[in-house]
């Protein structure tokens, strides 16, 4: 491959914005859980009761998607900083994406199983 520094991929804004929005979602969710814990949610039954609400399930789902999306951008940026060979980087990107999708699926499964 031609060894030349090329930039101008014309993306990055969406990721940057997504990182901020997902961070906001995560922050709100964390606050929500903190309030719930302080409000007496501590044992399995009360957790189960909380998670029975459709809204809470949806909010948890949103949190997990946000977390994975956020992590995808962050981890990808780390690979972009430190891993220079394109082939290895692409492989790591793919593995990261697969892992995150996997985690998300698993987590959703867990929530809806409750």
């Amino acid at each position: 491959m031609l060894n030349r520094v090329v930039v101008g991929a014309h993306y990055g804004l969406k990721d940057w914005l997504a990182q901020r929005i997902t961070a906001l979602v995560m922050m709100l969710y964390t606050l929500f859980i903190a309030v719930a814990v302080l409000g007496g949610v501590h044992d399995f039954e009360s957790w189960r009761g909380l998670m029975a609400h459709g809204f809470v399930r949806f909010f948890s789902f949103l949190f997990i998607v946000s977390l994975c999306w956020h992590a995808w951008i962050g981890v990808r940026d780390i690979w972009m900083d430190y891993i220079k060979p394109v082939g290895i980087r692409l492989a790591l990107h793919s593995l990261t994406a697969l892992a995150l999708v996997g985690y998300a699926g698993w987590a959703i499964q867990v929530i809806w199983r409750l």
Partner: peptide, 14 residues
């Protein structure tokens, strides 16, 4: 702005 919209050129700033 076009010139800067790039994951490296601008968005490496953390």
């Amino acid at each position: 702005l076009d010139n800067l919209e790039d994951p490296y050129r601008l968005f490496r700033c953390h």
